[in-house]
Design a protein around this nucleic acid. Sequence first.
DNA 1: ATGTCACCTGGTAGGTGA
Length: 254
Amino acid sequence: MKLATWNVNSLAVRLQQVLDWLAANPVDALVLQETKLTDDKFPHAEFAAAGWQVQWFGQKTYNGVALVSRSAALDVVRNIPGLDDEQARVIAGTVDGVRTIGAYFPNGQAPDSDKFVYKMRWLDALHDWVQGEMARHQQLVLMGDFNITPDDRDVYDPIGWAGQIHCTPQERAHFQRLLALGLTDAFRLFEQPVKSWSWWDYRNLAFRKNQGLRIDIILVSEALKARTTACVIDKLPRKNERPSDHAPVIVTLG
DNA sequence: ATGTCACCTGGTAGGTGA
């Protein structure tokens, strides 16, 4: 079984790339972030025509998430229950017995901004909700664009980025709190190339210079960890014409 | 070099967010 996450930075722009990627990478489930589509504009017929089930939850201009799967997703949840949030950031469903949570974590903009305060509040709510989901589902995966670098290994220039957004101690403490629930960063279960990133800024020729961050992350529960046999970042789509600034991440379960 | 991209409003550009 394979599960994947990809921030597509506008599904309107990237739909064909996503369908092509799914054809080449027949995963069991793929969660998308930054679809940037209201629900009435979601291209569900195109997914259905290619043989995929899909659940979606979006808004105008910003955010927006989806869960694409081969078998139907059950018990679908949109956003964090109980959190008053106008932003469409979470979609969850059970796919082939695996509780699959796709999330687009807030960016946070800058540590001294209102958006950072929102990010902290959102992370608190996510933690508490995921805790409950884990009590109900042994086999659980939380994946998406975390907008947090877990560690300095995940930053191309840790000195330059120290204390900056995605790299603050507060964000990393929230990441550790998620791990403390019994989740594991699937990517770090395996030896990986140094300078492995999942996002490269469109600016500054960052991809050509391999200046990036690893902020797209797959966390697995203990029961899934025991099944995990691989986790890789697929850089190929970042080389497409008109690429997303993020690459997909894939986890393989036995 | 902050060297880009996507989307909005109200346009044949400027602002916002990432």
